[in-house]
Simulated scan of single mutants.
Amino acid sequence: MQLELRHLEAVCRIAEAGSLSRAAALLGVSQPGLSAQLRRIERVAGGELFVRGQHGVVPTPLGKFVLSKAERVLREMDALAAGTRAAVPHPTLRLGSILLVLTDGLFGHLERELPGHEIEFSIEQSVTTLTRMLGAEQYDAIMYGEVAEYEVPLPDGMAVRTLIPKEPACVRVAATHPLAGREQVALAELAEETWLSSAEDDDGSPEAMVEACRRAGFVPRFRYRIADRKMRYDLIATGRFVSLSQPTSPYAEGTVLLPLAGDPITGRIRVAWNRAALSDDRARLLYRAAGRAYLDGVPYNTFYRSWWASRPELHPNLD
Rank of each mutant, 00 (worst) to 15 (best):
L95V: 09
A191E: 10
I236W: 06
D202W: 02
P165N: 11
L110W: 08
I119A: 11
D202I: 07
A277K: 05
S205G: 07
P89I: 05
E113F: 01
A24Y: 06
A212M: 08
T266C: 15
A272F: 00
Y294L: 15
S68Q: 15
Q31Y: 14
L100V: 00
R6A: 13
M77R: 12
D202P: 01
D78I: 06
G56K: 10
L318G: 11
P312A: 09
G145D: 01
P220C: 04
S97H: 03
P91A: 11
W273N: 03
Q54L: 09
R221I: 04
Y233A: 15
P316F: 06
Q246D: 14
A23P: 02
G28C: 14
H117I: 02
H55G: 07
Q184L: 06
V57N: 10
Q125E: 13
D201I: 00
I123N: 10
W273E: 01
T92V: 13
E183L: 07
I164M: 15
A70M: 14
L99E: 10
E111S: 09
Q125F: 09
S198R: 12
T255M: 11
A36I: 07
R232L: 05
P259H: 13
R22W: 03
A45D: 01
N301E: 06
S30M: 03
D263C: 09
L80R: 08
P206D: 00
Y144G: 00
T129N: 14
F50W: 04
D203K: 03
K64S: 04
V66I: 15
S19F: 07
T194A: 14
E113I: 09
T129S: 12
V160H: 04
G267V: 10
E137Y: 05
L80G: 04
R232I: 05
Q184T: 06
D319C: 06
D296Y: 06
H7T: 00
I265K: 00
V219R: 13
A261R: 15
R94C: 11
A290F: 03
W307D: 07
L110R: 15
R275A: 07
G33Q: 08
G262K: 09
A237Q: 07
L244V: 06
P89K: 04
L318I: 07
A191F: 07
K230T: 02
S97E: 00
